[in-house]
């Protein structure tokens, strides 16, 4: 049985209570993209200001559960000021962490047959406190974001955790495609 403490780590609760980079940016130059979780009504609004090939600034608004809002806050601190290539790398790493099973198949074919994690998220405890042998994701690279790995054990909540990230992807996609047109 996954423990509640795996989900509600102290870092997550801290970012939920005191969200970082909360607010809005002037549009333009920033882009404003809304993300919704239609199942639960959670809403994340990402303001992303892209300057050249850098994510110069980011702000988050919206409302939702502790997981969606803390994930957005953690994301903002992780990507703010980074070149877009590195932003995409952080996004990729984070999303891999959110889909451990698929990542295990992709990157460690020999582990592909073991789908204890995938079945319901209720059986495996191995990824609890940094069992790096099982992890296809470099958690050190994720820093504080690694606190969100416990979400994987609560499959229904993965959508909460990825909401801000999918919204950010859309924002920088739009920024890059529009700069390509100009």
């Amino acid at each position: 049985m996954p423990a509640l403490e795996d989900l509600y780590r102290e870092i997550i609760l801290d970012h939920y209570r005191s969200p970082r980079n909360r607010g809005e940016l002037a549009v333009p130059p920033a882009r404003r993209v809304e993300g919704f979780n239609p199942l639960c009504g959670d809403e994340v609004v990402v303001y992303a200001e892209v300057d050249g090939d850098k994510l110069a600034d980011i702000r988050i608004s919206g409302q939702g559960c502790s997981i969606s809002q803390s994930s957005a806050s953690l994301m903002s601190t992780a990507v703010k000021g980074l070149p877009l290539g590195e932003v995409r790398e952080v996004i990729r790493t984070f999303k891999s962490m959110m889909s451990l099973h698929e990542a295990a198949i992709d990157e460690h074919g020999d582990h592909g047959g073991e789908d204890g994690e995938h079945a319901s998220g209720t059986s495996g405890d191995s990824s609890g406190e940094g069992g790096p042998g099982e992890e296809p994701v470099d958690l050190e690279k994720l820093g504080e974001l690694a606190a969100l790995q416990g979400v994987v054990k609560f499959p229904v909540r993965i959508k909460c955790a990825t909401l801000a990230w999918n919204t950010l992807v859309q924002a920088i996609d739009e920024a890059e495609s529009s700069s390509g047109e100009e």
Binding site: L4, Y8, C65, S66
Partner: peptide
Amino acid sequence: IHPHDLAQVLDE
């Protein structure tokens, strides 16, 4: 407390 978080804690 967000309802999702309530439901999650209640499930325990």
